[in-house]
Simulated scan of single mutants.
Amino acid sequence: MLNSATKIFAEKGLDGSRIDEIAEDAGINKRMLYHYYGSKEDLYTEVLRFNYDKIYTMSKNAFVLADDPKENVTRAIRAYFYFLANNEAFVRLISWEALNGGRFAKKVIPQFFELVELEFDGIIKDGIKRKFIRPDIDIRQVILSVQALCLVYFNRREIVQPLWQEDMLSEKMLEARLQHILGLIFDGIFMS
């Protein structure tokens, strides 16, 4: 149900999607959707939660506190970047949500942001203690910067693709972009 809802909401946004379409795509009766989620808006909120949970789980699994902070940061950013590369529906869903003022994301994002912040906080504190990471780092700014640097590549891909000769989703281009992002983040948070 949630995969079908993600697909339809990503294609048409909340306002353009119909419960009938989602139920048909999922191969279920629309009454079942109403039974489990109550309304189209509640289903949409659950789709956001479902997708953000995937990101949180993925980022949590990227951290190994005993590892070098640079390796942890690299794994976390790589995981998020390739999650976006492999989940166009999520990128589109977030674009729709941004166009609509974050009406429903406001209900979901704070809890996940706090969880990610807690995960990153341990890595940052460990890096500061080990004198790898600058002590004046604002973790929320770092998380927002990583999110923006990664998301914009996929969110604006169709607009900027004419500037590149290669397909922006080719492995070579994806890795070049990821290395650029890592360089910017490393220059910003790691001590010289």
Rank of each mutant, 00 (worst) to 15 (best):
E166S: 15
I137E: 14
F154W: 13
R92K: 15
E11A: 14
I128F: 02
F50Y: 15
L33E: 03
D15K: 07
I77S: 00
N100F: 11
R130A: 08
Y52F: 13
E114R: 13
H35L: 05
L115V: 01
L115T: 02
N51R: 02
I19A: 06
A66P: 01
I77R: 01
L182I: 12
N61E: 10
I123G: 00
I181M: 01
R78D: 12
V47I: 07
T57N: 13
A176M: 03
I19E: 06
L48C: 03
A98C: 03
A62P: 13
M191G: 08
I28F: 07
F81Q: 03
T57C: 04
V160T: 13
M168N: 13
R134N: 11
I143D: 02
I189Y: 04
S145D: 14
N100E: 13
W164H: 12
Q141N: 10
A89P: 01
E166D: 15
E11G: 02
H180Q: 11
F81K: 02
F186G: 02
G13W: 02
I28C: 13
D15L: 04
E166W: 09
M173Q: 09
P162G: 10
L151W: 11
M173F: 03
G183Y: 12
P162A: 05
I181Y: 05
M173R: 08
Y153Q: 08
Y52C: 00
V146S: 00
L163H: 14
F63K: 07
N100M: 06
R157F: 05
I55Y: 01
N155H: 08
I77T: 11
V73F: 09
D187E: 07
F83M: 09
N100Q: 13
E41V: 05
K131I: 10
L118G: 14
R49C: 01
S95M: 02
R75N: 12
V47C: 02
S95Y: 13
A10Q: 04
P162D: 13
V64E: 11
S192F: 11
E117Q: 12
D136C: 06
A23H: 05
L33D: 03
P135Y: 05
I22F: 05
I124V: 10
L48V: 03
F154V: 07
A98Q: 14
I123D: 02
R31W: 10
K125N: 11
V108I: 13
R177M: 12
A89W: 06
K60G: 01
L48H: 06
N61D: 12
